[in-house]
Write a protein that binds this DNA or RNA. Structure first.
Lengths: 339, 339
DNA sequence: TTGAAAGCGCTAACAA
DNA sequence: TTGTTAGCGCTTTCAA
């Protein structure tokens, strides 16, 4: 390949001149659109390669009014859960010519507004965003863009257009069910103090409601700030068990702190799952190699990403109801007694 | 905010008509550019908000020949290392008006070519990509784009424009140094079989070279395919120690499998670090809550992301030499004997 | 199968 | 401080 350094980027016109073919036909060849003779096609491709031409999608997008981008707006990347969702999105988008563009909100509604505004200004072909709770402004923007908008992760609420996710209320409720069935009664909860993490909040609500139905009250709670880590899990577990030594179950709001708690309890010689049961949430890979398998709920992250991408790309029709509710699957692991 | 459903997206002209101000002045207000009277500004902003106008960056980019996007091309997201790099990039880009756009190559050179081509066709303001090894085609593209191009993670090689990273040869060599100083001699290595992971390869080369200098030969190796997990680490550790029971050290190519190996060894009752030493690579958070702190090397992921972003954004000048070599820092942990 | 003309929505450059 | 004009590099539409 021969290339020349030049301040001006190459344009279709350059390829047109180098190949002796009109710009229009060059454009057709480069996009595989319309009928072009093999000879012409060859001339054009050779010229383009020789020059090292890279098309300008900015100009193309403006002219065609179509942009092969999908905006994906998520709260966090450090979380171990959203990369999985992204993986699902990207694998399903792979053969569609669409490309995900990721924006991160750090669980801040105002950042979400800003990120959305920014992404919409690129006129993407669709929007995938986490959660059902958005500012007035964000809802207004999204209701009027005239694009597929898929809200993911959660189905407990009213979608703007379409929702793909699990019911976190149900996830919490079913875990409570399993814990009660196994005979645990003195139950403690450990989770982040994050008013903006609506899914964690709904999970706990579903969990407590189910306990209440059974006449059981949450015996203790421990909240923390900031990111989740094994260390945090240890620390909080120690704290809650020191405060309430007679707890017989700990429900963690995610697997990372759950795993930390599990490691701590094992070191301290707790009888698990006999005297103390444990459960997390998410179903992350990390749990695979721990000394004991933590009970958890598979949040269907990859599936959610895939289905959302299928809808945005038009592979799958938006359901009449606007909601695709996947089932949160309980993975019993070894940290809950068999009933 | 009043919005109306319309098939045609709003344009500057709509805001211009609604506010009775010329398109040009509307544009100035919306970009905070040039002198505009407070009264006019107010009229424009009110009109824009009332209509729910979202600017079209496609058109803006074409007209101004500038696009506030930075292409970030990395091998993987599921890796636990690249999200950290991204965090560094994005935090440093936050106040520059530049936005990262992420492309993932899955360690495939041909995917890298495709992703780069695609991203360059958006005419970004700069490119950050992992590694120094690229196809001819990729190098040609990047040498001629006339943008800042920062290759990250690695400095052992010739950058196209600028490199920010650590020397993986040195990281391997220094770890070998530490292991030898602690008196270990029967050393085994566990790593991925990934010809395209050049950094892992260089680390091992540096490691072995240092051993050779000391007259020590690697006593065993175990390779695996696919992703890293605690489970993989356990499995491989068991395999290598079964095959070569008299090893006194295991060097893992990353912390995830290292942590798996550590957990396995602790369960089996190995005397660590007395009879058997262990070390990983990366310095990930995960290590914090394990029963014992795995020795590792901090790969400076966040710093690398930050510095790369500073260069691309012009906050920091490209160094004369084109290379910014950060120091890989050894974190001794508890799994290497004190010399 | 190929080409010519017009214009996508915005901003640079200049004029008033 | 505000407005006018002329494109940015492509693709759509229509004609040949």
């Amino acid at each position: 390949m021969i290339t020349k350094r030049s301040s001006r980027p190459l344009t279709l016109r350059d390829v047109s001149e180098a190949s002796g073919v009109s710009e229009m036909t060059v454009s057709r060849v480069l996009r595989n659109r319309g009928d072009v003779s093999a000879a012409t096609r060859e001339k054009v491709l050779t010229a383009a390669r020789t020059l090292g031409y890279v098309p300008n999608k900015i100009a193309g997008g403006l002219a065609s009014q179509r942009v092969n981008l999908v905006a994906v707006v998520i709260p966090s990347l450090s979380n171990m859960v959203f990369p999985d969702v992204l993986g699902g999105v990207s694998s399903e988008l792979d053969d569609t010519g669409l490309q995900p563009v990721v924006g991160v909100t750090h669980y801040s509604p105002s950042r979400e507004d800003a990120v959305l505004y920014d992404m919409l200004s690129w006129r993407p072909s669709g929007v995938i965003l986490a959660g059902l709770e958005h500012s007035q402004a964000a809802r207004a923007m999204l209701e009027n863009v005239g694009l597929p908008v898929v809200e993911i992760m959660d189905v407990d609420g009213e979608p703007i257009d379409t929702a793909v996710g699990i019911s976190h209320r149900r996830a919490g409720s079913e875990m409570a069910e399993g814990i009660l069935a196994a005979g645990y009664r003195r139950i403690g909860f450990i989770g982040t103090h994050m008013p903006e993490d609506h899914r964690a909040r709904k999970r706990l609500a579903g969990f407590e409601d189910r306990l209440t139905e059974a006449g059981v009250t949450l015996a203790a709670r421990e909240y923390y700030q900031g990111g989740s880590s094994l260390g945090k899990g240890r620390e909080l577990t120690e704290r809650i068990l020191t405060r309430e030594p007679d707890l017989d179950f700990l429900y963690f709001s995610n697997d990372m702190i759950g795993a930390g708690g599990l490691l701590w309890c094992l070191e301290k010689g707790y009888d698990i799952p006999g005297k103390l049961g444990l459960a997390g949430f998410n179903g992350v890979d990390l749990l695979d190699g721990l000394p004991m398998r933590l009970a958890t709920t598979d949040a269907r992250r990859v599936d959610i990403g895939r289905r959302a991408a299928r809808i945005v790309s038009g592979k799958e029709a938006r359901p009449e109801s606007g909601v695709i509710a996947l089932s949160p699957t309980i993975i019993p692991g070894d940290t809950i007694r068999k009933p």
